[in-house]
């Protein structure tokens, strides 16, 4: 019977996969190719093979090395905060306390606001004098009208805060649905034995949803640098490169300095590193999905 075999399935799958190879694998290979050449857009015909020289240049480029540090900060600090705060919020929302039900709906908002608009939302919020932060400062009687974007430390902090703002509610909703899928017996038993709310979650719920936490973390890490539009709008990578992660530096090279070969080198290097770190996890996730028999 056709239902038990793979008959007729490949004609459904193959056209799409061939199309996907054409629009994804091919461009990635082209990027690799470009990174192996000297390309000068202003002087066509001067293109010549460079081997790995663009890659050697990376490690003598202090601005590139700085962008690596910024990348690490902009990946790990926001993701760690998103997971920790998201878990805490999920535990709180799970209690379904009166007056908190509407929050589940509000939590959807930051995840669907266009990132460029999120950047503008925060840029407006901190405008000295005209922003909500100045307003809040006025209400509580503290002067908060500081130019946060002019100092490296506060600019980076602001990008991290925005990243946490964008990602945390969504992480919380994911964790919440994981928590709500757990059985209550062990948790209740622990509570009856005198464990506090926090202890019961810490020792019972969290170990159970560890695979979910890990999966969420992998996806958040992979998507952490999708804050490109936020950086573009908020800081433009500045001041002095303090908020310039690796993909932003690649953009600057490609579209401001018109050094496409070097831009390709930077981003291909990043692609290889990220895939090296994350692909074992992704393959694992794919394996879990595929072992989940349809029936």
């Amino acid at each position: 019977m056709p239902g038990k075999t793979n008959r007729g399935l490949w004609p459904l799958i193959m056209p799409t996969f061939l199309a996907l190879v054409a629009i994804t694998v091919l461009p990635i290979l082209v990027t690799l190719g470009i990174s192996l050449f000297y390309v000068d857009l202003t002087m066509p015909g001067m293109t010549r093979f460079a081997g790995l020289e663009n890659y050697f240049e990376l490690f003598q480029d202090s601005r590139f090395l700085n962008s690596l540090t910024v990348t690490a900060k902009l990946i790990f600090i926001p993701v760690a905060l998103q997971i920790v705060i998201g878990l805490l919020l999920a535990m709180v929302l799970k209690e379904k306390l009166p007056g908190t039900g509407w929050m589940r709906m509000a939590f959807l908002l930051p995840a669907v606001i266009p990132p460029a608009v999120s950047g503008l939302v925060w840029k407006l919020f901190i405008v000295p004098g005209a922003g909500g932060l100045s307003y809040l400062g006025h209400v509580i009687g503290v002067d908060l009208s500081l130019d946060l974007l002019s100092m490296p430390g506060s600019a980076l902090t602001l990008v991290i805060v925005t990243s946490v703002w964008v990602g945390t509610p969504f992480v919380a909703l994911l964790m919440l649905s994981a928590l709500e899928s757990l059985g209550e017996e062990q948790y209740e038993a622990a509570r009856i034995d005198g464990a506090s709310w926090f202890q019961a979650h810490w020792h019972i719920s969290l170990p159970e949803i560890r695979p979910v936490i890990l999966t969420v973390a992998v996806f958040r890490i992979l998507e952490a640098l999708a804050i490109f539009p936020i950086i573009f709008v908020l800081t433009g990578g500045g001041p002095a490169g303090a908020t310039e992660p690796i993909n932003y530096y690649a953009y600057v090279n490609g579209f401001e300095y018109l050094r496409v070969d070097y831009a390709a080198t930077i981003i291909f290097f990043f692609f290889v590193v990220m895939m090296g770190i994350c692909s074992p996890f992704l393959i694992n996730i794919a394996r879990r999905e595929s072992s989940e028999e349809a029936r």
Partner: peptide
């Protein structure tokens, strides 16, 4: 994959 890798090609 990071979006930037597709931009140049």
């Amino acid at each position: 994959a990071p979006g930037m890798i597709y931009v140049i090609p």
